[in-house]
Amino acid sequence: MTATLERPAAARRVGAGTGPGRRRLRNRLTVLAFVAPAIIGFLVFFGYPLLATIFFSFTRADGLNPPVWVGLRNYVHLFVNDPVGRTAALNTLWLALVLTLLRVVFALGTASVLVRVRTGVGFFRTLFYLPSLAPPVAATLAFVFLFNPGTGPVNTALRWLGVDSPPGWFTDPTWAKPSLTLLMLWVSGELMIIMLAALLDVPVELHEAAALDGAGPLRRFWHVTLPSISPVLLFGVVNSVILALQFFTQAMVASAVAAGSADVVGNSKTLGYPGNATMTFPIWLYQQGFRQFNMGYAAAMCVLLFLVSFAGTAVLIRQMRNTSGLGEAR
């Protein structure tokens, strides 16, 4: 297939010359054909639920009976009367900042290691990606077990290394979110593979030219690698923000395991354990909508989450574009 690329000018045809009007029409039809399914998908799987959610957010609804219009009451409750919701929002913001940053850096770092490995390439890739292959519940359970403060091998190793009082990890309110972040780095294989694919895509000539100019590895990374992978970097950032904002399954399972109740994930006792340190906004929202039948309130939370996510991401994309041309290569 690459053969076509390698004899470019040879096959330059002239016959395609048509009037600009027909060309524009054809262009429009092409675009339409390319994006039509996605537009339908957008309307059905985003537009409809979003509108329904906005509507529900102004009602008292249980999802079973006709909703009752209550105006802004759900929003007022969210901002005034719901301390758990507030804690959850702060936790989610924390994750959006810390987890996003570390996940992108970590994925890029591991991908950079992988790209330099020459012996056993496939072996290492598979090894690094393996955690992401595992079903999340089992993977999370295993991870939390290894970090058990009393009996887990991690703290045993730390004590052996001379750390007197190693952290309580998932059982300690101050360590719970950092522990969750570690867990998510462990399963960041997806982003790592994406970064790897991007790194492998960097045109060789750029590196060669830079090397000829005498640029060291750091400068080459900064001036050659980063700009060429910037669209993928943008993906990594946005994807990580979304992941953090919608963080759900692993936090539910990790808190249940840490509370000693791996078997009853989702029980009110284990949600957010310890001390609501792992209570995320989506978890509380789900709890409201499904468990407590406050669909209207859950919808209001959802609208808020959506607005903040979208505004934040839009600003992020614009900033990255403006400051460094990130995200829109060439």
Partner: peptide, 12 residues
């Protein structure tokens, strides 16, 4: 107490 709880085994 929290130390004790942190290493108490799984409930079931």
């Amino acid at each position: 107490l929290s130390q004790f709880l942190a290493s108490a085994g799984q409930q079931y």
